[in-house]
């Protein structure tokens, strides 16, 4: 079974992954609308919405997995390692929540209007 080592980078990596997700999401939406904009009449059921949603789900799954991994690797005794891994687990989880929240509009809105 894989476990995570207690390292402060885990405090930042979840949200870094989220940041990459965000950049690709926003960039992908912009590029998609610049190259092959779906018609406004199609509403939110377009290829671009589907791609962005899929993108959201992939990243959210990854972050949830990391959150679970960090949670499972947390040692029972109090101390630095426990502090780092517990906090990291929560941050991975929140990064996953942030990913899902930010991806939500791609399920509801037309992409280019």
């Amino acid at each position: 079974m894989k476990t995570l080592r207690a390292h402060p980078l885990h405090l930042f990596s979840g949200l870094l992954i989220w940041a990459v997700y965000y950049v690709v999401l926003y960039g992908g939406q912009g590029a998609g609308c610049a190259i092959a904009p779906p018609p406004a009449e199609a509403g939110s059921s377009t290829w671009l919405n589907a791609v962005l949603l899929l993108h959201t789900l992939v990243f959210a799954t990854l972050l949830l997995y990391l959150a679970w991994l960090a949670y499972r690797s947390t040692p029972a005794e109090r101390g630095n390692a426990r502090f780092l891994l517990r906090t990291s687990a929560a941050l991975y989880l929140l990064a996953a929540v942030a990913t899902l929240a930010i991806g939500l509009p791609s399920a509801l809105l037309p992409p280019c209007v």
């Binding site: 965000y22 999401l25 926003y26 939406q29 912009g30 609308c33 942030a98 929240a101 930010i102 939500l104 509009p105 791609s106 509801l108 809105l109 037309p110 992409p111 280019c112 209007v113």
Partner: peptide, 15 residues
């Protein structure tokens, strides 16, 4: 800006 992109930022602002 297209409304969907605005919605991304709106969500982030509320978060």
């Amino acid at each position: 800006i297209p409304q969907m992109a605005q919605a991304f930022f709106s969500m982030a602002s509320m978060m």
